[in-house]
């Protein structure tokens, strides 16, 4: 009787595991959005020195995925593209904000510091794009 119960538990666990794997495979886009919002965005927000500016990138990419009506795999590519683009836009905007006044004040140190900080958004965007492309490639 005990053995029977154990076997039934194992079957039920396997079914749950297979259900979860099916869901991950079928809706990888939602999983990646969850990853971007729950892991990447807080990580970037608390680790990056440009804080909220670099965090725009994962949040923006997640939103692109949320409003997109493509199939999951295409959605990943779109999100990657949006992350890259947003990263570049945020970096250039930040550079314009920091580098302009820094050059006007002839503060070379601030120019260097500004570049090193504002580049974080581009790096975040490119990293997200690489991860999403890799996941998408793995699924095809």
């Amino acid at each position: 009787m005990k053995g029977e119960i154990q076997r039934m538990k194992e079957v039920s666990l396997n079914a749950k595991r297979s259900g979860l794997m099916d869901f991950i495979e079928a809706r990888i886009d939602l999983v990646m959005i969850l990853f971007l919002l729950l892991i990447v965005a807080p990580l970037v927000y608390f680790v990056a020195r440009s804080t909220v500016w670099a965090a725009i990138v994962p949040v923006g990419a997640a939103w692109a995925g949320l409003i997109s009506k493509e199939v999951p795999q295409e959605k990943l590519i779109t999100m990657g593209g949006v992350a890259q683009g947003l990263g570049l836009v945020v970096t250039l905007f930040g550079l314009g904000q920091v580098i302009g006044p820094a050059i006007a004040a002839h503060n070379v140190e601030m120019v260097g510091y500004g570049v090193s900080i504002k580049i974080e958004a581009t790096i975040t965007g490119l990293l997200i794009s690489v991860i999403l492309s890799a996941v998408s490639a793995r699924l095809s």
Partner: peptide, 11 residues
């Protein structure tokens, strides 16, 4: 942060 929160709810 607001967009992040709304995005999470939407998800």
């Amino acid at each position: 942060p607001l967009l992040w929160f709304i995005g999470l709810l939407f998800l």
